[in-house]
Design a binder for these strands. Structure first.
Lengths: 232, 232
DNA sequence: GCGCGACGTTGCGCTGGCGCAAACAGGCAC
DNA sequence: GTGCCTGTTTGCGCCAGCGCAACGTCGCGC
């Protein structure tokens, strides 16, 4: 299969990389379609490849030994994922599940050193990617440690709206289906509580709810909610 | 100031780096003493340098806008820290406070590209360091989301014992002073609850408590506690 | 168009752990 | 030794949010 430069021309991981270097990068890449609900890779599986999301949205899920699921993050278009091996692991620490039909590019791990060597900007970009994720994850720890459930949900919805929001006439809509259960798994609460909170917000006119859908009509109100601290 | 190779000979960040390369690394480094309680750098300060802890223990603390503190991690001997800039930030996202008297090595950010270029193993090692931290932080998110307070405290104490434990005749002692407040800031709870839990464990013979000190006498019991899940 | 399964809502009772308050203890300064 | 400051313990009341359960609703497959 031939892959065209235009595929990754606008991808931030490859920002500043040009012409022949792009071709070089694509030479060892393989693209594939992942239908909604399917796994790109499973937690604990041996990590042979690393991935780039070209189109769609991917959910990264960690499952605890007793079967509880926690959503570690959502991968947006243009992001690298499954780069566990580069970080010193030989298995994937979480599962990656397509939230909608997706298109991914992937490389064997063996391509990593070449890419690094051939394309210096790639290395720096990747540092930034991992660094950003570390920041975000630490921010989540802080949120979990200090915020009430309602503010955590507000923060999570805001983050989704920022990263995967689509402007509609009614407000900002998260552009992939998401269940109450999944919001609960992002915020460390239960689907019941999420449902209650979202219903209350709908009363206040802050959001509009539908099946597997959340539309933020008043982002500012959500901001205020997420900033209201406990232990006042 | 002359710095000797032996300073960093045993440091894992520099594993596999030899002779002249070590000298090169040390040429642009500066060492300094940090007394207990002093900041190496403060949250929000402009990040001009990055650091390596040679001796001691450092607490990385994030403060929320309303003044709540969360301990992001402890830095152990031989670890890099304050590498925010390499991850795409221009200020430090947290403060680094010496838990005991410390010795740190530091470099200006400008030294980073040279080190990367001159010492390839350094780059890979750093990926691993950041990757490991990302893993650990995500594990903490999962813990915060799924575990009860008692298991979170058990997990935190176990982690401290593993990373900074010192074998004594009474058991494993955490080899820097740590207050109940600090344990609370690691686990997202209050010093009151920490105190109650530790007292209960002392009753059971699992730990021995003292002022700013915890001695684990029965690590296995702690393991079991940390694995006991809620929602049975 | 009918049935079924997945998703969402809501009421109710219970409890883990927090907030508050008060008292206590170790250690350093003088 | 005396006092003070920092860290620790403990009792008590309360409430946010969970567990459970029942019911409602959307949409897909046949």
């Amino acid at each position: 299969m031939r892959l065209d430069r235009s595929l990754i021309a606008g991808v931030s991981s490859f920002a500043g990389i040009e012409g022949e270097d792009l071709d070089f990068i694509l030479a060892s890449a393989q693209s594939s379609r992942v239908p909604k609900g399917a796994e790109v890779f499973g937690q604990g599986a041996e990590a042979h490849r690393f991935f780039l999301l070209l189109a769609g949205h991917i959910r990264v899920v960690r499952t605890t030994p007793d079967g509880e699921q926690v959503i570690a993050r959502y991968i947006n278009e243009g992001e690298l994922f499954g780069i566990a091996v580069q970080m010193g692991r030989d298995t994937y620490p979480a599962s990656a599940v397509a939230a909608v039909d997706c298109v991914v590019l992937s490389w064997p791990n063996s391509a990593w050193p070449e890419l690094q060597a051939r394309v210096p900007a790639f290395g720096a970009n990747t540092y930034r990617t991992i660094g950003t994720r570390l920041q975000e994850t630490q921010t989540r720890v802080v949120e979990m440690a200090t915020q009430q459930v309602e503010q955590r949900i507000a923060s999570a919805i805001l983050r989704l709206a920022n990263q995967a929001g689509r402007k509609t006439e009614n407000g900002i809509e998260i552009d992939f289906p998401i269940t109450r259960q999944e919001i609960a798994e992002m915020t460390g609460t239960t689907l019941h509580t999420v449902s209650r909170v979202l219903s209350a917000w709908e009363q206040d006119g802050t959001v509009r709810n539908a099946r597997q859908k959340v539309i933020v009509t008043d982002p500012h109100a959500l901001m205020l909610l997420s900033e209201n601290r406990r232990r006042k």
